[in-house]
Design a protein around this nucleic acid. Structure first.
Length: 574
DNA sequence: TAAGAGTTGTAACC
DNA sequence: GGTTACAACTCTTA
């Protein structure tokens, strides 16, 4: 595409949204090359790297204190890294659709690069569409770069959909068929990440100023709420005091610099560990140092690029001892990055078929209809870690405190909320996770909720996690519970997973007062899990009927009653 | 059309 | 600690 509109020097802007990094950032490099005038001294222009704190953005509206802290740290780190290179970050607050045109006029911007959102996330689609419209009117040339997945998702050269005949609805819906698709694109080779720009790559003597008006925000309470926002109505409920609450400690600090250090420490420096990594075998009982990489928060905001992680894992694996067993996708570390691309492709495909459907049950081509209940009390108990099942409550406490839970803990609480126990919609769970998780990601979060609730991609609903047995097997002494549910810390190991089975003298000795400082179970897992399996079975039968060409009517008798289907686990109900 | 595979279940048995 | 029944899902492939 033509970059220059006239003989004038270019004024280039790079709009950081996700992709909060300097390394492997094609859009940033392209903007810099434009501003440098292809090294023609007469054509050296200006370069403005910009981040917009957008209070309307879903990231801020659903955002927990932890996530706001993490985001601001990422932005601050970007500013520092740019300053080292003789530049700076311009941080502006407001709606991008209003803010960008002002900056374009003020600075005379001719070109703007940004990282594309290919998943079709509704807020991004709406925002970017509106910005593009204004840019067109103002003659600002916008250029999007696909850099947040190993390969572009869409119908562009090297993209997944381009290798599916250009039809997103042809996207593979299983991990193995996804891996085959990837292996057909350039024989499965993953492009090498681009280096971060050096000081010499920035146009010098241009526009570096210390205008305090554009400094990064320091504290989460500096973020203004959108106009008309009413506390407690929607989104986060926090103020300055909440932000200073010492119990809220993100599991990792934000920023590209720390992300790259962490990659070095956990992957590069541990070749044997990296080569033999198997996700299902990692521990969800750790109370001090996590058993996985905890790179996901950085990937979700693009502090580190997936290609960078991919190649670091490949290099470390090459250096591993010959005696070390090499794990393979989907359980290996490469597998984890592949899952990420697969999930992104599914989001892209769902939204290409029906815009905005990926985060919902209704109209989502990958989601089965399940008649979930809606009980605010059960949902609140789950969110607040007051279900009466210590392992579930411990996970929810860690989520609230650190913005992170081990993958298997997420499985446990997601299964519990949906098909396992509470029979609440996965949408409600996904919504809560999106606000609380540091690594909240539209594609991946919704994919996993579809999976765990057996609404899509995973269908073995008879495999159900027990909120007691699963973790008892991993952590017999209940150390994880003792840390995150301190009310139960003094219970003997025998009762730590089921405090209601202890007699009153044992409870008294441990300082546990059921219904007072710790709740009794809100449901009986042994009973509801069986009932729920029968409900899932009926929902699946309805789905089959619809697949067969009907509208599910054959499952409903003329009097409106459900079919007399023999419950498959009837014999176990007693 | 049937067989096989599917990142990570549970409980009972030896 | 390994094996098996539980009651049986869907999607892909041959």
């Amino acid at each position: 595409m033509s970059a220059l509109k006239s003989n004038d020097a270019v004024v280039a802007m790079h709009w950081f949204r996700k992709g909060l990094r300097l390394h492997d950032n094609a859009g940033l490099l392209y903007a810099l090359s434009l501003a440098k005038g292809n090294n023609d001294a007469n054509k050296v222009g200006k370069f403005y790297p910009v981040y917009i704190v957008d209070p309307n953005c879903y990231q801020l509206l659903k955002c927990s204190v932890n996530r706001a802290k993490f985001l601001l740290e990422c932005v601050q780190d970007l500013h520092s890294s740019l300053k080292v290179r003789g530049s700076r970050l311009y941080v502006v607050t407001g709606d991008p659709v209003e803010v960008l045109p002002k900056l374009w006029s003020e600075w005379g911007v001719t070109n703007m690069t940004y990282d594309a959102d290919e998943t079709g996330e509704p807020y991004s689609v709406e925002r970017d569409g509106a910005v593009q419209k204004v840019a067109m009117q103002m003659g600002v040339e916008m250029m999007a770069f696909q850099t947040e997945t190993l390969r572009p998702l869409g119908n562009v050269p090297g993209g997944y959909v381009a290798n599916l005949g250009g039809l997103a609805s042809n996207a593979p819906s299983t991990m193995s068929s996804f891996q085959q698709l990837l292996s057909r694109i350039d024989r499965g080779n993953i492009p090498v990440p681009l280096a971060a720009p050096k000081k010499a790559d920035f146009p010098q003597h241009s526009n570096v100023d210390d205008d305090e008006k554009y400094l990064p925000l320091e504290h989460p309470w500096d973020i203004p709420w959108p106009r008309g926002y009413k506390r407690n109505e929607i989104g986060p409920v926090w103020d300055r005091k909440d932000c200073l609450n010492a119990s809220l400690r993100p599991i990792v600090p934000g920023g590209e610099t720390i992300a790259l250090q962490r990659l070095e420490q956990v992957v590069t420096a541990r070749p044997d560990w990296t080569a033999s990594f198997e996700k299902p075998k990692t521990s969800c009982t750790e109370v001090s140092s996590p058993s996985t990489t905890v790179l996901s928060p950085y990937l979700s905001l693009g502090c580190i690029s997936p290609r960078t992680v991919w190649h670091a894992v490949a290099d470390a694996t090459k250096r591993a001892s010959s005696k070390t067993n090499r794990s393979k996708p989907p359980v290996s570390l490469h597998g984890q990055i592949l899952w990420r691309d697969f999930n992104n492709l599914m989001a892209h495909s769902a939204n290409a078929q029906n815009p905005g459907s990926w985060g919902r049950m209704e109209g989502n081509p990958y989601c089965r209809s399940v008649p979930w209940s809606s009980d605010p009390k059960l949902l609140a108990a789950w969110k607040g870690g007051r279900t009466g099942y210590p392992w579930i409550d411990a996970c929810m406490a860690q989520l609230r405190s650190e913005g992170w839970i081990h993958h298997l803990g997420r499985h446990a609480v997601a299964c519990f909320l949906t098909r396992g126990d509470l029979w609440q919609s996965w949408e409600a769970g996904a919504d809560h996770f999106e606000g609380e998780l540091l690594d909240a990601d539209y594609a991946i979060n919704n994919f996993n909720w579809l999976w765990l609730s057996c609404s899509g991609f995973f269908y073995q609903y008879f495999r159900c996690y027990s909120p007691i047995a699963f973790q008892k097997k991993n952590d017999p002494n209940g150390n994880y519970i003792r840390k995150w549910v301190p009310e139960l810390a003094n219970l003997p190991a025998k009762y730590i997973y089921e405090p209601w089975t202890a007699n009153i003298s044992i409870l008294n000795a441990a300082g546990v007062k059921l219904d007072k400082n710790y709740p009794r179970p809100i449901v009986d897992h042994a009973i509801v899990s069986k009932e729920n399996m029968n409900k899932m079975s009926l929902a699946y039968d309805m789905h089959k009927d619809q697949q067969a060409g009907g509208n599910g009517a054959s499952s409903i008798k003329s009097d409106g009653s459900p079919p007399k289907k023999k419950p498959k686990t009837q014999t176990k109900l007693k």
